[in-house]
């Protein structure tokens, strides 16, 4: 039961408290770029969840059974980015072959994920900063992906409001978007104490 509790805590903290986009600034490019429309934001978010979990499932064993075992820890960055790039390509090909309908809706977002720092960030964090075991790492990646989806979906709603409003000339476009992101991020601060109190 305690392990289950700790997994829930990890999940909740990575979705709400340490939200990758809004409090750790990872994956800002797609957050600002693909959040104009709700359906695109959802598609991108789901693709990110998928790639994050699969990437963690592959990189965690590589780190612990290959790199650490042979003293190659310093190769982490190179190996991880190559694994993620190859994996994204592979997932795209597999989807195209076996699930063409899913490929049609998610396929366009996959190439953009290779250079998404949130994916590389979560795989490195799972090993370095948090030192999670395999199951915890998977849950953390799922949580980060869900947090990303949540931020994207909330923000796409906010952006459609901005499109219709009167803004000073200099603030049109990106500046207004960033200031809106600031408010969404501020709202997420409200979750700060939630994890400690969850099982109190």
């Amino acid at each position: 039961m305690d392990t289950f509790k700790s997994l829930i805590v990890i999940l909740m903290s990575s979705v709400l408290v340490n939200n990758y986009v809004l409090s750790r600034f990872l994956g800002i490019c797609p957050f600002l770029g693909v959040s104009k429309k709700l359906n695109q934001a959802t598609g991108m978010g789901i693709s990110v969840i998928f790639v994050m979990v699969v990437a963690t499932a592959v990189t965690w064993p590589i780190q612990h059974f290959v790199l650490d075992k042979f003293g190659l820890g310093y190769m982490q960055t190179i190996v991880f980015i190559l694994v993620i790039a190859a994996l994204v390509q592979f997932i795209e090909m597999a989807l195209k072959k076996f699930l063409p309908s899913l490929h049609k809706s998610l396929g366009v977002y996959l190439p953009l994920i290779t250079t998404n720092c949130a994916v590389l960030g979560v795989t490195i964090d799972n090993i370095g900063e948090f030192n999670y075991n395999f199951i915890e790492s998977l849950v953390n990646s799922l949580g980060c992906g869900l947090g990303f989806l949540l931020a994207m979906v909330l923000f796409s709603g906010m952006r459609s409001k901005i499109e219709d409003s009167e803004i000073p000339e200099s603030f049109k476009g990106l500046p207004a978007t960033l200031i809106a992101a600031s408010f969404v991020s501020l709202a997420f601060f409200g979750f700060a104490g939630i994890v400690d109190k969850l099982f109190a």
């Binding site: 000073p168 600031s182 501020l186 601060f189």
Partner: peptide, 19 residues
């Protein structure tokens, strides 16, 4: 120094540079 402040300052800076 927190996350929202970062977004806010960056947004204002871009607007100032544009101006």
């Amino acid at each position: 120094t927190k996350a929202p402040g970062g977004f806010l300052v960056y947004g204002i800076m871009i607007a100032v540079v544009y101006k």
